[in-house]
Computed example of a mutant assay.
Amino acid sequence: MSQGRATQQQAILWFDEAACSDVHQAGGKGASLAAMTARGLPVPPGFVIPAFVLEQAVDRERLLALVLEQRHAEAQALVRQAEPPREAIVAAYERLAPDHGRVAVRSSACAEDSEAASYAGQQETYLNVSGPDEVCRRVVDCWASFFSERALFYRARKGSLHDLRMAVVVQKMLQPEKAGVLFTVDPVNRRRDRLIIEAVFGLGEQIVSGEVTPDHYVVDRAGNVKREQIVAQRVLTEEEIRRLTGLGLQLMEMFGQPQDIEWAIEGGQLYLLQSRPITTL
C-alpha cells in the first residue's frame, strides 16, 4: 500500500474529530471513545487508524478467500506482511506522546459492540507500548488478531466472515491508582435498578485476566451501596462510587442502552476508557 493513498483518505482520526464517531471508520471502540470525547467526558486522548487502512494494506481478495475457508494461520501470515501508514502513525504518536510515553494499542472491529453481538475479547489489546517502531508493530498485531482461529470461529456464528474491516485505537496510557469495570445494570440478576462496580488497585486489566479478585459493589441509582464484597483493603471511597454511578447513568442515557464501562482513577481524576453495550440482558 502506498503511504499517499492512505493519507489522502485520512489515515489518522483523532477522538475529537467528527469522523471518528463513525463506527464504519473507527470501529465500535473508537467510535464510542469519540462520542464520549465529544460530550466532554473524561477520556484519555488518542487517535484511530481507520478500518479502510487494513483493507488497503493487504491483498483483499486473497485475504477474503482465506477467511471464508477459515484458514486462519495463512490469513494472519498475510496480514503480518502488511505495511501500515508508518509516517502518519509516527507523527500522530509523537503528537500524543511527545516524550515517547506509553500508549495502549487496541483493536476496534467495525461490527464490534453492536446490539446483536459483543466482540469484546475476540481481538488483542497491547498495553504500555512505547516508541514509534513498537506502536507500528502492535497496529499490525491488532490487525492479525482479527483473523485468529477464535475470532473467525466467533464471527462465523455471530457476525460475517465477509467483514474485513478493523480499526485500531492508540490511546494515552494511564498509570492509575485504581481501576475497574462498571455495569449500569445487574446483568446476572437482571435488575435495572442496580449497578455493579468491580475495582482493583492498579490496572483494570487484572480483572479481565483473572490475576486479582476485585472488590465487588452493588449500588442503587443514587450511588448508595446495597451490598459489597471487599477482598482486603477497600478500594473505592463512597464519593468515588457516587461519581462512577453518575457517569455510568450518563453514559447509559447517552447511548440509549445499558453499558459495560471500563474506568480508571489517576491522581484523583476519574477517566473513562471504554463503554460498550451489554448484550446479554
Rank of each mutant, 00 (worst) to 15 (best):
Q257C: 12
C110N: 14
A26S: 15
W14L: 03
P176D: 06
V219F: 01
R155W: 08
E112K: 02
L13Y: 09
A6C: 14
K172P: 01
G256F: 04
V212I: 15
I261L: 05
V219R: 00
Q259E: 12
D141I: 00
Q250E: 15
E149P: 02
I196M: 13
A144R: 09
S32N: 12
T237V: 02
A19K: 13
M173D: 07
H72P: 00
F201L: 06
A117Q: 12
F183D: 08
G121A: 09
L203I: 11
L195S: 10
I230F: 07
R95N: 09
T245H: 06
C136W: 05
G204F: 08
M36C: 04
A88P: 01
S32D: 03
Q25F: 13
I49P: 03
I278F: 04
A26F: 06
R221F: 00
G27D: 07
Q269L: 09
A65C: 12
Q25I: 07
L63R: 04
L152G: 09
T213M: 13
A222W: 02
V219E: 01
S32G: 15
R137G: 15
H72A: 15
E61L: 11
F201Q: 04
L41A: 04
E228W: 02
E83F: 03
A19D: 13
A97W: 05
L272Q: 10
V48W: 04
E177T: 11
D59V: 00
A77N: 09
V225F: 00
R191H: 13
G268R: 02
G4H: 11
V219T: 10
V58W: 02
G101N: 11
E61A: 14
A116S: 14
E240A: 04
E134R: 14
E177Y: 00
S145P: 08
V139D: 05
R71F: 00
F146V: 00
E69K: 15
L270Y: 01
A34W: 04
G248D: 06
A116E: 15
M36W: 01
L127C: 10
G101Y: 10
C20Q: 10
D186K: 01
N189E: 14
P85F: 08
W143I: 04
P50Y: 11
E61G: 12
L68G: 07
